[in-house]
């Protein structure tokens, strides 16, 4: 008869039941804090990157025109370039930047939802 030997080892810590990250956020654990801060930081960086680059580009124009007046005088089809830039060009630029932002921002939120709402 083969003697059966019961092998015992030090008791392993029980694996924690997998629970959704939403409860980490609800209970404001450190992990929940990381999730929320991460989301806020990503969205803030995205917003600042799109907003500051677009508005900065526009806001650079007056100082360029003031310091180098030669940049303001070339004409296109008889109309000075600044009129094309500010009268027409600025609007597609703004709308394009806005569209880009919304696409990226919705992607960030989808990723956040996938991350925390997995059950």
């Amino acid at each position: 008869m083969v003697e059966r030997e019961v092998v015992t080892g030090p008791r392993r810590p029980q694996r924690r039941a997998r629970r959704p990250a939403t409860s980490d956020i609800d209970e404001q654990t450190r992990l929940g804090d990381v999730y929320l801060r991460g989301l806020m930081r990503t969205q803030l960086r995205l917003g600042l990157a799109v907003g500051l680059s677009t508005l900065g580009l526009l806001a650079a124009l007056p100082v360029v025109f003031a310091l180098a007046p030669g940049t303001a005088t070339p004409t296109l089809a008889g109309i000075p370039v600044p009129w094309w830039l500010l009268g027409i060009g600025a609007y597609p630029l703004l709308a394009g930047a806005a569209w880009l932002y919304v696409r990226q921002s919705e992607r960030v939120e989808r990723e956040f939802t996938d991350l925390v709402d997995r059950r």
Binding site: L46, V50, G51, L55, A98, V102, S105
Partner: peptide, 8 residues
């Protein structure tokens, strides 16, 4: 442009 800042 005010609306872009409002958006982002």
């Amino acid at each position: 442009a005010g609306y872009l800042l409002l958006l982002v």
